[in-house]
Amino acid sequence: MSQGEPVGELTESVGYALKQAAAALRAGMDAALRPLELTVPQYACLELLGQRPGLSNAELARGAFVTRQSMNGVLRGLQERGLVTRPASAPHGRALPTELTTAGREHLRRASVAVRAVERRMLTPLTSAEQRRLHGDLAACAAALTLESAD
């Protein structure tokens, strides 16, 4: 019975290079968001709500890649700062739909510009065609693993 193939040299591993890129992106986003007093999960929450108002805590947690418990803390902090609003009771079921306030939309605009600048800096070595290819390739890789885990 074969044990399969080991990872081999990390310098040749696509997964390792991807993790390095993700860590560098996260560090760049952290630095860009710090003056706005936002964390990456807080920014992700605002961005999701800016594009899809009314998402529940569970939907926000999935979209921001954090646990529901972590998202509760994120939402509480954003609500205390007046950036999001949630009803006191759920209109249907148990989910509390969250929306950006006017201050939240303005904060999101500045944060989104800052994060986009980091992304542009990351992509500067690539042509427009290479950027589109990279996006498509990464999406295909994610889909392949998502399909595998669903089996």
Rank of each mutant, 00 (worst) to 15 (best):
M1R: 02
S2C: 05
E5W: 11
E5T: 10
E5G: 00
E5C: 08
P6W: 11
V7H: 03
G8R: 11
E9H: 09
E9P: 07
L10R: 11
L10W: 15
L10A: 06
L10I: 12
T11M: 13
E12D: 14
S13G: 07
G15F: 11
A17C: 10
L18M: 09
L18W: 06
L18Y: 03
K19G: 05
K19E: 11
Q20C: 15
Q20I: 15
A21M: 14
A22D: 08
A22H: 07
A22R: 13
A23E: 14
A23R: 15
A24N: 13
L25C: 07
R26W: 06
A27Q: 15
G28E: 15
G28H: 12
D30M: 11
D30S: 09
A31M: 12
A31T: 14
R34F: 04
P35M: 11
L36E: 04
L36K: 07
L36W: 03
E37S: 08
L38I: 04
T39V: 09
Y43N: 01
Y43K: 04
C45T: 02
L46N: 07
G50K: 13
Q51N: 12
R52M: 00
P53G: 08
P53E: 05
P53C: 03
G54Y: 08
S56V: 05
A58F: 06
A58E: 13
L60W: 00
L60I: 12
A61G: 02
R62G: 00
R62A: 10
R62W: 09
G63A: 08
A64F: 06
F65R: 09
V66N: 12
V66S: 10
V66T: 14
R68I: 08
Q69F: 12
M71L: 02
N72M: 09
G73Q: 14
V74P: 08
V74A: 06
V74S: 08
L75P: 01
E80M: 12
R81M: 03
R81C: 00
G82E: 00
V84H: 06
T85V: 09
T85G: 00
T85H: 06
R86P: 01
A88N: 10
A88D: 05
S89M: 13
S89L: 13
A90Y: 07
H92W: 13
H92F: 14
G93K: 04
G93I: 05
G93F: 07
A95T: 04
L96Q: 01
T101V: 07
T102V: 04
T102L: 08
T102Q: 09
A103L: 08
R105E: 06
E106I: 00
H107K: 15
H107L: 01
R109Y: 01
A111D: 04
A111G: 02
A111K: 01
V113A: 15
V113W: 09
V113R: 14
A114Y: 02
V115P: 07
V118E: 10
V118Y: 08
E119H: 12
E119R: 14
R121L: 07
L123M: 13
T124C: 03
T124N: 05
P125L: 15
L126A: 07
L126Q: 00
T127N: 00
S128Q: 01
S128N: 03
S128E: 04
S128M: 01
R132Y: 00
G136N: 10
D137R: 12
A139V: 14
A140W: 03
C141W: 07
C141Y: 10
A142Q: 02
A143E: 15
L145E: 02
L145R: 11
L145P: 03
L147R: 06
E148A: 15
E148R: 12
